[in-house]
Design a protein around this nucleic acid. Structure first.
Lengths: 228, 228
DNA sequence: TTGTCGGCCGATCGCCGACAA
DNA sequence: TTGTCGGCGATCGGCCGACAA
């Protein structure tokens, strides 16, 4: 079971992009995941790390994390850098932390309480849906929950019949995805049609997987190209 | 550019299968590749190995081959085991050698001239073709060079009109592939049709890639099921 | 001898509202 | 409100010989 995500993010500046992707990263990671602040002190458990990597990759871990017999079970470290990543194949999010072990003297020299990390902020304008069999079949498109569409997608032009627009979104890897968003049927409902199946097959989504959309209202108008 | 291969190998016994896959492995590796015999002495160059791995994977090699500053530039080793492998994704062949470094004393104790390796024997009954645009397009099948088909494929029943049969082959991973082999057209030519496109997409073959067929005449008749 | 193409037909894709849960 | 389905048109896959390199 996997989670795919897309955000409607304008590519205005590098700085802004990084901030927005950080928000998408946290939205995918969930509210329980928090990252410690750069400069704070963290305790690193080599053995636990080895076991977790071995469990998640089902591979021998020796080649990646050499077994140093002299390594202590836990190390007090200073956090130098934090970068957010997403697996190229699965979109699974993970973070890379650069740690520097502190000598016993350094630990005494300037003791500071450990940073517990800033709690992850969930974006308010987003929705997450578990995909149904119909959503992932080749027979049709993606049925968008009504309140989700009204909250997250830019408003449709209801003077058109039927109301329809093109959505352009970007995923964690900054890939661009285009979706045809239409409001049709009896009773009326929001659907993503053209472009949806490409996304499903590219992300290898199956029923039971989840998809997450977030939206930034600011400066996005140019990205949503209304279809005449 | 990649090489895909398939052999028409009966799955009679484990032992025979191993021998046959060894032949397919050597056919893919090419005549210049030879493997030293188990028990012989080989010289291992850690630095050269690191550089080669780094070049072929385009990745940092530090994580896989730790840099031991005290490691000598070359090590005389005894070869304990040789296993042939093929990459699951690309079918690229490679071998895994288990080496044990010999102490200076051991090297002196029983000096034997280094084994230069048994030269790789190319199977006589095989053919290799570089795929054309037509071979890999979705429009049609695979055009088999006439002499290659007559040499490697089992003979067709020309009393049928057109002559046609089903070929069952196995690749290096022991996966089974079925191809419809037909002799038709004006002028007449050998073609692989049904089943070919599945192979192309599964192996992700493109024009310029090569495909290699080998055939063992002994005991293969049951594997070639004539289509009525 | 064989690489590419037009023709053709069947399978699949994917958009539509109907309908019911 | 929304998951699934039948209907259907459009597209694509893939088998055929024609033809020429």
């Amino acid at each position: 079971m996997r989670l795919s995500s897309a955000s409607f993010i304008p590519q205005t500046q590098e700085g802004e992009k990084r901030v927005l992707n950080s928000e998408l990263w946290h939205a995918c990671a969930g509210p329980l995941v928090s990252l410690p602040a750069v400069g704070s002190r963290v305790v690193y458990f080599p053995q636990g790390h080895s076991e977790q990597v071995a469990a998640s990759t089902n591979k021998e871990v020796d080649a990646r994390i050499p077994n140093y017999p002299s390594l202590p079970p836990q190390l007090v470290c200073q956090l130098h850098n934090v970068t957010m990543h997403a697996d190229v194949e699965t979109d699974e999010v993970y973070a890379q932390l650069t740690l520097q072990p502190l000598s016993p003297q350094e630990q005494k020299d300037a003791y500071l309480p450990a940073d517990l990390g800033t709690p992850s902020k969930q974006p308010t304008i987003y929705f997450c849906k578990t995909l149904t069999a119909s959503d992932t079949s080749t027979h049709g498109g993606f049925s968008v929950p009504r309140r989700a569409a009204e909250k997250v997608f830019p408003p449709l032009d209801f003077s058109q019949q039927p109301p329809v627009q093109e959505l352009i979104a970007r995923d964690l890897h900054d890939n661009e995805w285009k979706f045809r968003h239409i409001f049709r049927g009896q009773p009326k409902r929001h659907l993503l049609t053209t472009g949806w199946s490409v996304f499903v097959s590219a992300k290898r989504l199956v029923a039971g997987d989840s998809v997450l959309f977030i939206w930034y209202a600011v400066g996005c108008s140019t990205l949503f190209i209304p279809v005449v």
